[in-house]
Nucleic acid binder design. Structure first.
Lengths: 243, 243
DNA sequence: AAGTGGTCTAGACCACTCT
DNA sequence: GAGTGGTCTAGACCACTTG
């Protein structure tokens, strides 16, 4: 670990250095996703640190939801579960009275010039290009939400190769599969607007609409998506756990 | 630690037993809140376990926000900070355009008979009495939110001794000081209602109102408060971090 | 200098899973 | 039985705070 001590600066604890090395290997998909990663004793041999130090490094990665330990079997790479995702907070009640996730349909995706406010939010330089995406969300075939999404062009350019109808119901799996960006956390602000007329949303002009602004972050806590959603309040349902 | 091993059942790891012992002392206010708790080596002597085991127990209590470690000084009991609390998510924009927390005024508090639905939410037996509390929240002197709050009578009976005007702007400090209940987590559901006429809220009858249902939990993760808030959407602002 | 928590080690034994 | 992670120990040295 001596070279990495030098390259990382002398202040970083050993277990943090080990953590970064493992995290880097995870990002490079060095290990088979269906097999356990090397055991703690193997890793302690590989990095020439004690097993306790490896355990502490892995402990951190488990906290960050990158790894899962299973006693007796090994330590595994966590598979993101988008269908039961923590990212899904709002639902609508359908005609049957069930709370369901609105179906998503992408209407437009294009490369656009930088927008100062958005570039600032996504912590990009003022001259970085963006991807702009329009998407609607439907309940029982009716558009309830209209979403405007901005992404870094550099990170997400491969999304432009997908034709609109090939986008599935969820976007985040595409971010993950195509662009290697796993959305791990987010900040949401809910406010209300009145007199807003949306391109896709068929709302009475005097109706109060919900506006949701989301900044979504990847595993490295870097903001990678900014989203503004305009939604009808009828049958809307938002649920969140606060800790 | 042998007696406690017997009383706790033989399955609980040592560090969990130590954690529970420390947690119990915290609940009984055994230690001065302005002084560090006994050092890790003192605790390892007291409980006859290794220092690593004490460290693991304390680690858990730090994660639960019960303790704070400061290197070189010691481990301290965490003081709840209600004014900058994690519990404050919604704000309103005042006439000056600033986002502020609405001022809270308690209008009514009384002991009431059990309500099956509420008793179920608070995980009480069907015959446990309740405390019912009505409260309004104001911005610039205008009532924007009307809150109905239900609490366990057994846990919160001492609140009945407080006269209405002595309740401060915040309720949770009273829960903590008078009833030893620290609110540590919560679940909130936001929906909308139309045609609801509130006793305190001076809203047009056709106005869409926000309805917030909150279940708030103490440090032991037990639900202790159920709250339904009806609010006007004008200038409303809700913000949450999702992890 | 003394005391605190922070890092790191080496090794023991236990509980669980697979074959 | 062999291999995995889970628990627990005993002791070393470092970094920070206070007197």
């Amino acid at each position: 670990m001596f070279e990495s001590m030098a390259s990382q600066g002398f202040k970083l604890p050993l277990y943090e250095q080990v953590r970064l090395q493992i995290q880097e290997k995870l990002a490079r998909h060095v290990w088979d996703i269906n097999q356990p990663i090397p055991s703690e004793s193997e890793l302690s041999d590989e990095y020439h640190v004690s097993i306790g130090t490896v355990r502490k490094a892995i402990e951190r990665l488990v906290e960050d939801n990158l790894l899962v330990k299973i006693q007796g079997k090994g330590t595994f790479i966590r598979q993101p579960n988008f269908s039961a995702s923590l990212m899904k907070f709002f639902r609508y009640r359908n005609v049957a009275g069930e709370l369901i996730e609105p179906v998503g349909v992408v209407k437009n995706i294009e490369k656009i010039a930088p927008v100062p406010a958005i570039n600032a939010i996504l912590k990009l330089t003022p001259k970085d290009s963006l991807i702009y995406l329009e998407r609607v969300r439907l309940i029982d075939g009716t558009i309830m939400l209209s979403e405007k999404i901005w992404l870094s062009y550099d990170l997400f350019s491969s999304l432009l190769d997908i034709s609109l109808q090939d986008f599935g119901n969820l976007l985040y799996p595409f971010y993950y599969d195509r662009c290697n960006q796993l959305i791990a956390s987010a900040n949401e602000k809910l406010t209300f607007v009145k007199g807003y007329k949306d391109k896709y949303l068929d709302n009475p002009v005097d109706e109060t609409l919900l506006k949701i602004c989301r900044i979504a972050n990847n595993l490295e806590h870097a903001p990678v998506e900014y989203r503004e959603s305009f939604g009808r309040t009828t049958n809307f349902h938002y649920e969140v756990n606060i800790v």
